[in-house]
Structure formats: C-alpha cells, structure tokens
C-alpha cells in the first residue's frame, strides 16, 4: 500500500503567477510522457516483473513518479492561484477554466486530456522496459523544452531536478533491460 508523507520530494515555492508557463507545464502532468502516465505505467508493469530486482525497481520508480505528479500539480496551482478569469482567457486558458476552474486536471500543453493509451503493459518485461526507456527520454526532452521557455529560477529549479530524475530512471531501466535481455532471451 501507499502511505502519504506530508512533504514534497523537491521544494516548490513560486511567488508570482505565470499563466504562459502554467499552460505549458500541464504537459508534465497530463501529457503522453507526463508524470501521471509514468507513475501509472511503472505501477501496473511491476506486477509482471520476473524477479526481485525488477519488482523492486518498478514499484520504487512508480512511487517516485507519484511524488513528481505532486510537484507538477503544486507548480501549476501556484502559477495560476492569483490569476483572474480574464487573465486566464488572455493566455489561452479560457477553455481550461471553463471545464476545470483553477483546479488541477491532467491535460497536455494543447489541452488534450490524459488517456490510458499513453501507458503500456505487455506482460513481457523486456518489451515493457524498452517502452519505459523511451518514456523517460521523451519526458527528459519535454522538460528540456520547458526549461528553454523560462528563465525564472522558481520554475527552473524544480524543472532541472525533474529532468535529472528522468536521466537517472532511464539509466536504471536500461541496466535492467540489458540484464533481462541476456537472462530471459525474451
């Protein structure tokens, strides 16, 4: 089971609203390579991992990805909290406001809602790990685009942290992938 710890994984303290970045950052939550997809993907895949190392790694990374869902949601919320509906409208968040107010909802940067087609679970651990490696690289690329779009350190620092975590996750998945590829010939 999961138990909540009343803290974030990395501090977020955004003091000024920024509706442009708020709209873009939503992809980190609800995009195809976003954190919600990551957490769900690794969580469901952990059930078909063949050995102790795989089960542990997948459930531990899934758990960390939930902490990333929390970081991105916190960032979005702090970026829009003080905005008026008028301001949201002028930054192309009028559609979002209509459906979700200033609540947190998983969509990508162009407003497309999260879908289960973003996640895969084939029952084959080698295939799943190849999927996971690709997902981590896509997430890294998407954080790099977000980093290119801002120079505000309050937004930049958590994004740099999240990007580096994708690098680390990719390395762990790759190591396990190569190991399984040799071991199970799947």
């Amino acid at each position: 089971m999961f138990k909540y710890e009343k803290k974030l994984e990395y501090p977020v303290n955004i003091t000024k609203k920024n509706l442009e970045m708020a709209k873009y950052i939503l992809t980190g939550l609800g995009g195809s390579a976003g954190e919600l997809a990551a957490a769900t993907r690794y969580y469901i895949q952990s059930f078909s991992m063949p050995d102790e190392r795989g089960k542990a790694l997948l459930i531990d990374i899934a758990t960390e990805e939930l902490a990333h869902v929390e970081i991105i949601s916190t960032m979005f919320r702090q970026l829009v909290k003080d905005a008026t509906p008028e301001e949201l409208k002028s930054y192309n968040l009028g559609d979002y406001y209509t459906e979700h107010g200033k609540g947190v909802y998983p969509v990508n940067a162009s407003g497309m809602p999260f879908t289960a087609t973003y996640i895969q679970s084939t029952g084959n651990p080698v295939v799943d790990l190849a999927e996971d490696m690709a997902a981590e690289e896509k997430a890294r690329a998407s954080y790099e685009s977000l980093i290119d779009l801002t120079d505000n350190p309050e937004i930049l620092n958590p994004l740099l942290f999240l990007r580096q975590r994708e690098v680390v996750h990719y390395n762990r998945f790759k190591e396990l992938y190569e190991d399984y590829k040799n071991k199970y010939k799947l």
Binding site: P153, N157, F161, L162, Q164, V167, V168
Partner: peptide, 23 residues
C-alpha cells in the same frame, strides 16, 4: 544530491550548462 537531482557523480547530465541553485 537534492540540488542536482542525483547522488551519483558520473550520472549527472547538465542541460546547456544550467546549474540549479543551492537550496
């Protein structure tokens, strides 16, 4: 580790040389 997002020295991959602030 927290500042940069990893504990292993040779695993850190900086992006465009941007260094995260010390907390």
């Amino acid at each position: 580790g927290l500042q940069k997002g990893n504990m292993f020295k040779d695993e850190y991959l900086s992006y465009k040389g941007i260094s995260p602030d010390i907390i």
